[in-house]
Design a protein around this nucleic acid. Structure first.
Length: 579
RNA sequence: UGGGGUGUCGCCAAGUUGGUAAGGCAUCAGAUUUUGAUUCUGACAUGCGUUGGUUCGAGUCCAGCCACCCCAGCCA
């Protein structure tokens, strides 16, 4: 049901595509496009990652290149196999195929270590024994240059011996570090002798307890890209200042050693020329009424403010999936938001537009009464009951469904008003309305309980209105209904935005949790759905007519106890202007 | 007060070597409609952060301002 190839949707142009077109035209990068998606397995993927995934995999598809899937797992303390599995599942779900096997930066630890030895040998790196606090002092500030570490001029022999001993586990965490010898007075703080290896006496989820030293991102990432002969290394804007370091590392290693390591790993087909990767940055995705930082999402999960990473209110891919978003809708969203270098906040309405667009075309229609109100037809008997056949989609022929129509049925409480406001097109005393796909009925009487609450409507039916309009008068409204006979009870979870404030990240608002919407989840347990939904499959989406798009909860729904999640409501120009 | 970036319609975002402001979302108005949905039609920046300059002509070139974002983790 997810057609991702809509011919009307031409690929929008953006600066990265322009750059690649230019690269290809000039023969740069050997005329190849090799990208990679490199998440750290320390959390779940969110819609912001989808932007990067669509970019990297999309570019590879468009230019007949390839995109690698690589776990940037250089910090074992924060990572786990659970996240690796979840991330792979999310990328698969989005429908992208990575090139070859899944890669791990940790699989390059030996090569990375050897390259560090090369830097040490060439006087480009040294073991520093400053404490973390001292290192911070020596680094200087934004406006003041740093000072050279007293350990900066250690001999090659001493550096080599110390680094080897670091890996042997002879030192405690933080006792020493390996630093690139660049320039402590650089205005770019990333170039002030950055630490490239630190001691971590912990177990790594992939390599066990073999390694005692772990490479830092800046050191490992560029080399990993080189080892996979990536051509275009795409990342977000905050890494812009790291680009000079990315280039410094690669340029201070011999091209031959990089190429040979790439060859030894079996990553380099012999029909291509080896070229170094280049980093390009783009703006990360922000969506209003949402938070997109892994730290904040993690906090919501750990404090129990949401029901896990895949809570349908979360902007995580697993949350969106459970909410009922389709891969096609997310890919489409990533296409239409564009790609630029300016920080921006995309309106969540764009995301909603994308899922409505997809579901309107692909999902079957059904009727569901969220808050049942009994209706008894006073001029219709059990003997007259009949089976109605209604199309599953108003425009596409995807079959019909059957519904029993008898003397008692249910409509939604909100579709009846004792004293209708101007412009009201639903049911009210003495007025007519059409039951969708069935007859026109007229409200003759209202039954209330001792508190005055309306509990039943007595209506008359016009037998001449099945499939045709009544004579001499116009019935303005159509409402949905469900038969008393055969309707299924269901739980429906109505989700609203997780945050009340358009920008929960706004520092002026204090903690982002202050903006949490207390009514983001409303559970309705006495809903009634039409009988045809008995066979609904997990994750299947439906449009509950006049209400919105809903999907069968992939974990909690059972055939005898259906659970639906509201993905998004229908556009509604009535309640929008009438409360 | 250092360095690196960004500023085009309410929100995203195109704008080839300067030639007279795409598109989408949202919004508003109308038509169709057994979903107040969908679909269709129309409206929606003499204006491109700002001030000057160059030019026959500037969003596009130059200069100066202003605003916002990122960087001082042995995180990524």
């Amino acid at each position: 049901m997810t057609d991702t190839s809509n011919p009307d949707h031409t690929l929008p142009s953006h600066f990265i595509r322009h750059m690649i077109d230019h690269d290809l035209a000039s023969g740069k990068h050997d005329g190849r496009v090799q990208t990679r998606f490199p998440p750290e397995p320390n959390g779940f993927l969110h819609i912001g990652h989808a932007k990067s995934i669509c970019l990297n995999f999309g570019l590879a598809e468009q230019y007949q290149g390839a995109c690698n899937m690589r776990f940037d797992d250089t910090n074992p303390e924060k990572e786990s196999q659970e996240f690796i599995d979840a991330i792979k599942a999310d990328v698969n779900w989005l429908g992208f195929k990575w090139h070859g096997e899944v890669r791990y930066t940790s699989a390059y630890f030996q090569q990375l270590f050897d390259f560090a030895l090369q830097l040490i040998r060439n006087g480009k790196a040294y073991v520093c024994s400053l404490t973390p606090e001292q290192a911070r002092e020596y680094r200087g500030s934004l406006t003041e240059p740093g000072r050279n570490s007293p350990y900066r001029e250690r001999s090659f022999e001493e550096n080599l011996e110390l680094f080897l001993r670091m890996q042997k586990g002879e030192f405690a965490d933080g006792e020493h570090s390996l630093r690139a010898k660049i320039d402590m007075s650089s205005p770019n703080i990333n170039m002030r002798d950055p630490i490239i290896y630190r001691i971590r006496n912990v177990e790594h989820h992939q390599t066990g307890d073999y390694w005692k030293v772990y490479p830092m991102y800046d050191y490992a990432h560029c080399i990993s890209d080189a080892l996979e002969h990536i051509t275009h290394s795409l990342c977000t804007l905050e890494f812009e200042d790291h680009r000079p370091l990315y280039d410094w590392i690669l340029n201070n290693l011999t091209l031959d050693s990089l190429k040979n390591a790439c060859l030894e790993l079996g990553n380099l087909p012999d029909d291509i020329n080896y070229v170094l990767p280049e980093q390009t940055e783009f703006a990360r995705l922000n969506i209003n009424y949402n938070v997109m930082s892994k730290r904040k999402l993690k906090e919501l999960v750990e404090l129990g403010l949401v029901n896990g990473w895949d809570d349908p209110r979360m902007p995580t891919l697993s949350g969106l999936r459970r909410r009922g978003f389709t891969p096609a809708s997310i890919r489409r969203f990533c296409d239409i938001i564009g790609m630029s270098r300016s920080e921006s906040i995309v309106d969540v309405g764009m995301l909603e537009h994308c899922i409505r667009e997809d579901l309107d075309e692909h999902s079957a229609r059904a009727m569901c009464v969220l808050r049942p109100l009994k209706v008894t037809l006073i001029n219709f008997t059990d003997e007259q009951a009949q089976t109605l056949s209604l199309p599953r989609h108003p425009k596409r022929d995807i079959g019909n469904r059957q519904i029993q129509f008898g003397p008692t049925l249910y409509i939604d409480e909100t579709d009846f008003e004792q004293t209708p406001p101007p412009g009201y097109k639903r049911l009210s005393p003495g007025d007519e309305v059409r039951l969708r796909g069935a007859y026109v009925i007229k409200c003759e009487d209202v039954i209330r309980d001792q508190n005055g609450k309306v509990i039943e409507l007595l209506c008359s039916l016009d037998p001449a209105t099945l499939g045709q309009n009544p004579q001499g008068r116009k019935v303005k409204g159509v409402i949905h209904w469900v038969p008393a006979e055969g309707a299924l009870r269901a739980e429906v979870r109505i989700y609203d935005r997780l945050f009340n404030n358009a920008n929960p990240d706004d520092k002026a608002l204090g903690d982002f949790k202050n903006s949490l919407n207390p009514d983001s989840l409303q559970v309705l347990t006495d809903c009634l759905v039409e009988p045809s939904l008995a066979s609904a499959a997990a994750e299947e989406s439906f449009q509950f007519e006049r209400e919105g798009y809903f999907c069968v909860d992939r974990f909690d729904s059972r055939p005898d106890a259906l659970v639906f999640n509201r993905t998004v409501s229908l556009r509604d120009s009535w309640t929008k202007t009438n409360g």
